[in-house]
């Protein structure tokens, strides 16, 4: 790498300081997966296949959380124009994570669907609405890329982010609203869909996955901030 293209320490240092979260995640995830594979018994109907729930559900919750958080920052971007730069960066990073976890949710869902439903994909309300959410998140990222004016980019990206969050409750409640082949929500008041053992391990796995998402968020947020600052200094914005 030539000297002028080398990234300065002032930029790399704040990005690297979040690496410790990745190590904590690995530690927690190994325990989480050990509990999921060896501590919990097999399901009477699905056998061992159902164990993918310990990846699929945490990933789905993370997707919902980050898409919602992106919309929260997007609202702040629109309400507070003085600090819109900061909120926009946070909203952008959060929706990138939402997109990443949405695609993971779709892949793990498909992997679970093949042995249980016999197909990789079914046009079921939960699956379709999840796909729509993913497509809107992709639309957000493409729209940002193709909008050169920074002020316009912030405003329109904020609106698309809010639109994508509108879809989250639809995805979550779709199994109740329409007849669906997908199983009902994992945690519902009054209806006990999972045993307490499974619930604890599931929450533990979610905590680990959430830790990973926070680590990625922090690292990506710093790099977006650094990239935009560099662009500003170079006069590209």
């Amino acid at each position: 790498m030539s000297l002028e293209n080398e990234i300065p320490k002032e930029i790399i240092q704040p990005i690297k300081r979040w690496n410790y979260l990745l190590f904590i995640f690995i530690f927690f995830q190994i325990i989480g997966w050990y509990l999921a594979l060896y501590h919990i018994g097999a399901d009477t109907d699905q056998g061992n296949v159902y164990r993918i729930i310990f990846v699929h559900v945490p990933v789905a919750w993370c997707a919902f959380f980050w898409v919602f958080l992106s919309a929260f920052f997007a609202i702040l971007t629109l309400l507070n124009p003085q600090k819109s730069e900061i909120f926009d960066r946070s909203s952008h990073t959060a929706i990138e994570l939402g997109t990443l976890f949405s695609v993971l949710m779709l892949i793990t869902g498909s992997v679970w669907g093949k042995p249980t439903w016999g197909v990789w994909w079914d046009w079921d309300p939960r699956l379709t609405s999840s796909l729509v959410m993913f497509l809107i998140c992709c639309g957000y990222l493409v729209l940002r890329h193709f909008t050169p004016d920074i002020r316009t980019r912030r405003n329109i990206a904020a609106i698309v982010s809010i639109l994508s969050a509108v879809n989250v409750p639809i995805v979550y409640y779709s199994v109740n609203l329409w007849r669906s082949v997908h199983q009902p929500q994992t945690f519902v008041e009054k209806a006990k869909n999972v045993s307490s053992d499974i619930s604890i391990v599931l929450l533990f796995n979610f905590a680990a996955m959430f830790l990973l998402s926070i680590a990625i968020y922090k690292i990506r947020r710093q790099s977006i901030s650094a990239k935009e600052t560099l662009e500003y200094v170079r006069g590209e914005q």
């Binding site: 729509v132 809107i136 639309g139 493409v142 729209l143 193709f146 004016d149 329109i156 698309v160």
Partner: peptide, 30 residues
């Protein structure tokens, strides 16, 4: 109207408009 306004100032309007419009519109079509 919302999507038209959102994509009005982007470079690839003809790609972005259907890309945002169709997924969001799928609910009303269904």
């Amino acid at each position: 109207a919302l999507v038209s306004c959102l994509t009005a100032r982007s470079l690839a309007k003809e790609i972005l408009q259907p890309m945002l419009f169709f997924p969001l519109q799928s609910g009303v079509l269904l």
